[in-house]
């Protein structure tokens, strides 16, 4: 290359970041690390989590601002429209930011930061991670907020084509402005290990939060059927949630204690060690923008079986 590539100074803004844990948090962290490897500068801004407030540094000098702003509902910060303007402006000027990147439609901090960044004339990008409906009052309200904020963003990123359609309908953003960039998985962390698999039986692994949206009720129905049809099948269920009781109830009722193993919550670092024990990965979500768990499982060499919802058919096309 004759001309050096342009270096960006990116501000990632979202209410959701470590120590909170989930897909968005992971995505922001890995995206920041990759951008830094490519020579860009990245700063993350989120709200304070408990006593974690102020500036922290993470791996490779990733700077994180924990803005002392109280969360009020599901970790989203209290919406004030202009309340965060001074601090966002200070961060942008101090870090000499060139691009503001907001994450997750549910995050009020992200909306406000995009608004302030546009006010100051900076370029903005928005990433949508989830699918939402149109029918209930909460969704209608959020879609209106999204339409307002995204009216002026330069580009938006969605994780799947289904998510793109959804975002286009919700925010009225022209489809040319929406880019589909699927989530990536760290292949170095998820290597197959055929030696740890059982040879004489088939192990089906399920790792998800045990909630209604992840189809825990479906599992309650499926597991006894499968167990009665195929005597050589065993299940390993990782994850915790309100529906765990129902699964345990099912296990008691059908006397499947020796065939259904329930691990409880599994830390992300230990996910691989659970995955490599199985032959098949089962995802039973009722809605999913993009299932990173399927990718991780496939990466570990498992066959993946999933419900046909949201962006899942795109991620694992049957061709």
């Amino acid at each position: 290359m004759t001309e050096p590539r342009r270096r960006h100074r990116v501000l990632m803004v979202s209410d959701f970041f470590y120590p909170n844990f989930g897909g968005v948090e992971n995505h922001i962290y890995y995206l920041s690390q990759c951008l830094m490897q490519r020579g860009h500068k990245v700063v993350v801004a989120t709200h304070a989590y408990g006593r974690r407030s102020g500036v922290r540094y993470m791996t490779n000098g990733l700077k994180v601002y924990y803005i002392p702003w109280l969360p009020f509902y599901l970790q989203t910060s209290f919406p004030t429209l202009f309340g965060t303007f001074p601090i966002i402006r200070t961060i942008i000027l101090r870090e000499r930011i060139t691009l503001v990147h907001g994450h997750q439609a549910f995050s009020t901090l992200c909306h406000e930061a995009i608004l302030h960044a546009r006010t100051m004339g900076y370029k903005t990008v928005f990433t949508d991670h989830s699918l939402y409906g149109f029918a209930d009052i909460g969704s209608i309200h959020m879609n209106k907020v999204l339409e307002f904020t995204l009216a002026d963003v330069q580009q938006a990123i969605c994780v799947s084509h289904t998510s793109k359609e959804n975002t286009h309908l919700r925010s009225r953003l022209p489809p040319e402005k929406i880019f589909v960039i699927p989530n990536a998985v760290d292949t170095a962390m998820f290597q197959p290990d055929p030696s740890s698999r059982s040879q004489d039986e088939i192990v089906i692994v399920i790792i998800s939060r045990l909630v209604y949206r992840k189809g825990a009720d479906l599992l309650v129905e499926v597991i006894p059927e499968v167990c009665s049809l195929f005597p050589q099948v065993r299940f390993i269920i990782g994850g915790d949630g309100p529906k765990r009781v129902r699964l345990e109830e099912m296990r008691e009722k059908y006397h499947l204690q020796d065939r259904v193993e329930m691990l409880g919550a599994v830390a992300h670092a230990n996910v691989r060690s659970v995955l490599v024990r199985g032959h098949i990965f089962l995802n039973s979500s009722l809605t999913e923008a993009f299932c990173i768990a399927i990718l991780e499982a496939a990466c570990c060499g498992l066959l993946t079986v999933s419900t046909r919802v949201g962006g899942v058919p795109e991620a694992c096309s049957s061709t």
Binding site: P192, L218, A297, A298, C299, C300, G301, L302, L303, T304, V305, S306, T307, R308, V312, P313, C316, S317, S318
Partner: peptide, 8 residues
Amino acid sequence: VSYCATSS
């Protein structure tokens, strides 16, 4: 509820 399977 249909299945979509893929080779790893």
